[in-house]
Simulated assay, not measured.
Amino acid sequence: MTPDQAISMLDRQLAQHGQTVKLRKGNTAAGEAVVKAFVRGIAADEIAGTITQSDKKVTVSPTGLATFGMPAAGGSVVVDGTPRAIVGSPEILKMDDIIVRINMVVKG
């Protein structure tokens, strides 16, 4: 599988089954990006440190983030109208040094 194929597969799944979220660099709506994401709960075995079952895992594609840039610690994701702070640094998954998926844990 190539990076382009991996991104295309993720984009198709997000288009069909994802939900709309907003990525923000801080706590302001200026410059936010509206994207599709998978939003899931935290499993019991993923609870550690400050992560609780009320937090969420958010997965987005790098597609459409050229202007916004990569989500980062200190940013937020608006899920169902509620801003949720990104916990730590997002997990950036790469294939052949090309970003194919961004996973984040959000709190709030």
Score class of each variant (00 low, 15 high):
25 K>V: 02
95 M>N: 05
8 S>N: 15
47 I>W: 03
85 A>I: 05
90 P>M: 03
39 V>D: 09
65 L>N: 13
90 P>V: 08
18 G>H: 01
19 Q>I: 15
44 A>C: 02
32 E>V: 00
57 K>G: 03
41 G>H: 08
103 N>K: 13
89 S>I: 01
90 P>E: 04
64 G>D: 04
58 V>T: 10
35 V>S: 08
51 I>T: 15
97 D>M: 06
79 V>E: 02
78 V>M: 01
42 I>V: 15
18 G>W: 02
59 T>S: 13
66 A>C: 00
25 K>R: 14
11 D>R: 09
68 F>T: 03
75 G>R: 09
26 G>H: 14
79 V>R: 00
58 V>D: 07
17 H>K: 09
1 M>Q: 04
14 L>T: 10
63 T>N: 12
44 A>L: 07
83 P>F: 03
52 T>F: 08
49 G>N: 14
87 V>Q: 07
62 P>K: 03
106 V>H: 01
11 D>T: 10
106 V>A: 01
45 D>F: 09
40 R>G: 14
95 M>V: 05
21 V>G: 00
30 A>D: 15
104 M>N: 06
34 V>Y: 01
86 I>D: 03
68 F>C: 02
23 L>Y: 09
77 V>F: 01
5 Q>S: 14
77 V>E: 01
44 A>T: 14
39 V>Q: 12
8 S>Y: 12
75 G>Y: 09
97 D>I: 00
71 P>N: 07
63 T>Y: 05
43 A>E: 15
7 I>A: 07
77 V>Q: 00
57 K>C: 05
48 A>N: 15
49 G>H: 12
90 P>F: 04
69 G>V: 05
44 A>G: 10
78 V>K: 08
17 H>Y: 13
100 V>E: 04
54 S>H: 11
15 A>N: 14
41 G>L: 05
81 G>K: 07
23 L>I: 11
52 T>I: 13
31 G>R: 11
31 G>I: 12
6 A>T: 09
106 V>Y: 04
70 M>Y: 10
75 G>V: 13
46 E>Q: 15
34 V>C: 03
39 V>M: 10
75 G>L: 09
53 Q>L: 09
68 F>E: 00
70 M>F: 02
41 G>K: 12
32 E>H: 07
5 Q>P: 00
12 R>Y: 12
38 F>V: 08
40 R>E: 13
57 K>T: 11
108 G>D: 06
82 T>N: 08
94 K>R: 15
56 K>F: 06
55 D>L: 09
38 F>S: 13
49 G>I: 05
57 K>L: 11
88 G>Q: 09
89 S>W: 06
46 E>V: 07
75 G>C: 06
